[in-house]
Amino acid sequence: MRFLAFSTLALLLLSLESVLVKTFGFEVTRIDVGLALVVYAALRATTVEGAFSAFSVGYLLDVFTGRPTGLYPALAMLVFLLVRGVGVLVDGRSRASYALFVAVATAGHAFLSVLFSWLTSAAGSGHVLSLSGVPLQVVLTTLAGTAMWPLLKKIEPGERPEPGVLR
């Protein structure tokens, strides 16, 4: 039941993040701590446990937005599958490669969420403006993800499972 540990950690980190963002007054950018957990789960956990972890982290982020629509659980699952797919080709076991995965996943997640919002919302063009904060978001999330590495290793110390996207 490691996904419960991931969910609890995600809940605490999102609560902390929302307070820090308020305190330091970030207007557009955020630290996507939940995504760092999804990437870690995709690289380290088993398929079922990782999928549940990714889903629960996305669900929590969805609830934290104030208007849960299902967008973030779906995106978390997409990121989970993409990282897992790329993880077959690229070794993601070290801290450095994990940080690289987090950086790329953060940028991809931000673009996908804006794309989906743009496609489905009448006020879609407004969401495009939030992309201005993506570079800083990538940097902050990568730093936060790297800082969390020792903690994440305690939750899921498992090495990379056998190859295959749905292994």
Binding site: F52, F55, D62, G70, P73, T120, A123
Partner: peptide
């Protein structure tokens, strides 16, 4: 089993999002 679980966890929120849009639940 794994494919079905992952598929359900991906499709359920996606369909929910596409059907409710930005109104939220």
């Amino acid at each position: 089993r794994e494919l079905l679980i992952v598929g359900a966890l991906l499709l359920w929120p996606l369909i929910s999002y596409l059907s409710t849009g930005h109104r939220g639940r």
